[in-house]
Design a protein around this nucleic acid. Structure first.
Length: 496
RNA sequence: GCCGCUAUGGUGUAGCUGGUUAACACGCAGGAUUCUCAAUCCUGAGACCACGGGUUCAAAUCCCGUUAGCGGUACCA
């Protein structure tokens, strides 16, 4: 039992990695790391006319960003078709599979789905395939003569298939419920169930960790392993992840919102998403939720994987809470706890995308830049917030929130007050948090208004917003010049 | 239709070797912060543990049934 653990993540090349796939990849990766095993990536591209470099690229990108790079691979299932055919032929020779000369039924996915339910409704008992016991020599002769035939596995007529799933426990299925599955299409193309098994054998996979949608079909695969006379790996099926409303996650319907690259583009910290994903269907048992990769690797266990499917609460329509609020919250926690110089690059990326980046942030203004990040991260949830809500700190062109203006710049007296405050600040010998505050408080007292009126008005004047960091921190961060200028600029907005 | 899986507050989960006021987090509501709040802190509401039967002195926890949701059932993956 000292065999090295070898696991694989085997996605279809759908062009992008969605959160469900990412979670599956993560669990495989955690399991591999915990057991000092090997994590392999294999692209399941059989039958994919649409399979292309670009389609694979998105998956690689997502995995890389999450820090789940494979130890081996990527391999492509399509490059092993010869092995698949060889295995099937071997089974035919051994009488464990047979050629089926029944003409193929054509149909697209939808009609096939309908056909399944139609056929199955009308049919009482399963009739054995007429070619099941055709002598091998005769079958071979007909095949050589050019007659098209599919290869089917000869499933035992009676008995039960069993395997012990690491998360769902013992599984049983009656052989009579499993039909003689096709291994190789009549056009010579190997099918999924054969492909996975042959590849997993070839790659010496010890644990197959994948989505629960494969649970009932693994009996078929077990059958293939047995027919091939090879040891069956351990299986662990993971609960599915649903979209809000408990519906299946789909690219068509949910679009980019479920793609992990979206999380990268919208300023997520990879570790935060990893942490969040880990908790979707798994729990270490205690109350701790924020866990580093290291802790995740230590604590992870298939036994603690939940059996019920989970809902991933994203909401495309809401620009603020566009994804699961808990994921957003967790990302905020990460941004605040991370070292500043680890946050800086994430913010820089977002500023660059918004054309707000300046080279000096990486040079002479680096100190200012990190200070600004530190000030703002206390109330932001993603790095993208820096380019949106944080815009006034990095650019003189920003919008004034009408609600904020109405709330804080309503009082007509502010026209004079704002300008007056600007003059006071401009006249200050030193411009620091304390001198600015003292000046403002003294000025408001002279003018007989509450300091709060000026402070809140100034916040809106300087940032266009009603909320934000402590006012004097804002002033210092912006600098005297900009502060005075924006104070004067805002006079025009008073009373609007 | 058949086979299988699942079922704890809005969401993610804990608790499931039977005895707890059913716990934690997110979210939500209210309060505090007289410099705001979408930050922070405090408080609170919210679950008859899907439903119905058992077993037991005692069940969210064990058994059976029902229902619902989901998955599979393909010469798709």
């Amino acid at each position: 039992m000292t065999d090295t653990v070898r696991v694989r993540f085997a996605p279809s090349p759908t062009g992008y990695l969605h959160v469900g796939g990412a979670r599956t990849a993560l669990f495989n990766w955690l399991f591999a790391r915990q057991h000092r095993g090997v994590f392999i990536l294999r692209i399941e591209d059989t039958d994919m006319q649409r399979s292309s470099e670009a389609m694979v690229e998105g998956i690689l990108e997502g995995l890389h960003w999450l820090g789940l790079d494979a130890d081996e691979g990527p391999f492509f299932q399509s490059s092993f078709v010869d092995e698949h055919r060889r295995a099937a032929r071997l089974l035919v020779e051994q009488g464990k599979a047979y050629y089926d000369f029944t003409p193929k039924e054509e149909g697209d996915d939808k009609t096939v789905k309908e056909r399944i339910s139609d056929r199955v409704r009308s049919q009482t008992g399963r009739e054995p395939n007429p070619y099941r016991d055709l002598p091998v020599e005769e079958a071979l002769r007909r095949v050589e003569a050019g007659e098209p035939a599919a290869i089917r596995l000869k499933v035992p007529l009676e008995g039960v298939s069993k395997f012990d799933d690491l998360v769902y426990g013992p599984q049983e299925r009656d052989y009579s419920d499993i039909e003689d599955l096709v291994l190789i299409r009549s056009d010579g193309h190997p099918l999924y169930n054969l492909g996975v098994v042959v590849d997993d054998i070839e790659m010496r996979i010890t644990h197959v960790i994948r989505g629960q949608d494969h649970l009932t079909n693994t009996h078929k695969q077990v059958l293939i392993y047995e027919a091939l006379g090879v040891q069956v790996p351990r299986f662990a099926h993971l609960p599915l992840i649903f979209a809000p409303g408990r519906e299946k996650l789909s690219k068509r319907k949910h679009g980019e919102i479920v793609s992990v690259t979206t999380y990268r583009d919208r300023g997520f910290v990879p570790d935060a998403l990893v942490n969040f994903l880990a908790l979707l269907g798994w729990s270490p048992g205690g109350d701790q939720e924020i866990m580093s990769r290291k802790e995740l690797i230590e604590k992870f266990s298939l036994e603690n994987v939940n059996k019920a499917s989970a809902v991933f609460n994203f909401n495309e329509a809401d620009p603020r809470d566009w994804t699961d609020p808990k994921a957003l919250w967790m990302n905020a926690e990460y941004m605040r706890a991370m070292p500043l110089d680890a946050v800086a690059p994430l913010v820089a990326d977002q500023l660059k995308k918004a054309a707000l980046w300046r080279e000096e942030y990486d040079g002479e203004k680096k100190e200012w830049f990190t200070h600004a990040i530190d000030l703002l991260r206390a109330r932001y949830r993603t790095a993208a917030d820096f380019a949106e809500m944080g815009r006034p700190y990095f650019s003189d062109e920003f919008d004034y929130d009408p609600v904020a203006v109405k709330k804080n710049l309503k009082d007509e007296r502010l026209k004079d007050l704002l300008a007056g405050l600007g003059r006071r600040l401009a006249a200050l010998e030193d411009f620091t948090h304390d001198t600015a505050e003292a000046a403002l408080r003294a000025y408001s007292e002279e003018q007989g208004v509450k300091a709060g009126l000026l402070i809140n008005a100034a916040r809106t004047a300087l940032t266009g917003q009603a909320v934000g960091p402590s006012m004097f921190d804002i002033m210092i961060t912006l600098g005297r010049e900009r502060t005075v200028e924006r104070l004067n600029r805002a006079v025009a907005l008073v009373g609007q």
